[in-house]
Design a protein around this nucleic acid. Structure first.
Lengths: 111, 111
DNA sequence: GCCACTACTGCGTTCTGCGCAGTACTGTGC
DNA sequence: GCACAGTACTGCGCAGAACGCAGTAGTGGC
């Protein structure tokens, strides 16, 4: 099944959630998301999302040279990012609730 | 807030859910969705979705002339549509669960 | 020296929801 | 009898976002 479309607008939230509490660099964020269950997420999508969130002012960024590979660009939530995370979480829950209700309403449950 | 992106991929499911149990025509489906909580859904999006689902073979369609306005194009679920509804519902629940877990994992609990 | 792994960037494609304009039919008010 | 509002559908072009893929760059193993 194609979760691609479901991810739309939610990847931002997922990335923010994953960065909450602990900064991370792109490659690592991808791994965390996959470990969390979003196994089909493309790396380019994550990098793009990080850049977008950074451009929107929700993330701080700093480069850390690595001894075992190329440099790593770390991202972390700032105040705006934390607020965004909270807001997006609420929006998501509201949306999920609406959908849950919609999916329950129709069954020929004889309800 | 912009739920536009969240709708991506879910509108199909919402439309299928709304048509489950009772056929409906476009204008009516829009109203049902709005009544269900998806208030910002655009009418063109719904008509487009109906056409897409029909083209995919998930819906039956028949035109009913109306005495008080233009003809109405009714849509109803067929076997394929019902299967699709079931599958999409499962996918959605799985996805929602994953997101719920993700959103719970990070909070700096103490908060 | 070549290949694999880590890590990031950029480009073009695809999907899908949206806005807007247009068409068409009915009923109401002037 | 004509303009206008409400109902109902279609078509067109746009925009946001995820994706695939190719490319670049650093480190270490064979």
């Amino acid at each position: 099944m194609d979760t691609t479309q479901l991810l739309k607008g939610v990847l931002d939230l997922a990335v923010l959630a994953v960065l909450d509490g602990e900064d991370g660099y792109g490659y690592d964020v991808v791994r965390r998301l996959r470990a969390a269950g979003l196994e089909e997420v493309g790396d380019a999508s994550v990098y793009g999302t990080l850049r977008r969130l950074y451009a929107a002012g929700h993330l701080t960024s700093y480069v850390v040279p690595s001894a075992e590979g190329p440099h790593r660009k770390y991202y972390g939530l700032n105040v705006s990012g934390r607020a965004q995370l909270e807001m997006a979480t609420k929006t998501w829950h509201g949306f999920a609730d609406t959908m849950a209700a919609l999916l329950q309403t129709d069954p020929e449950v004889a309800a």
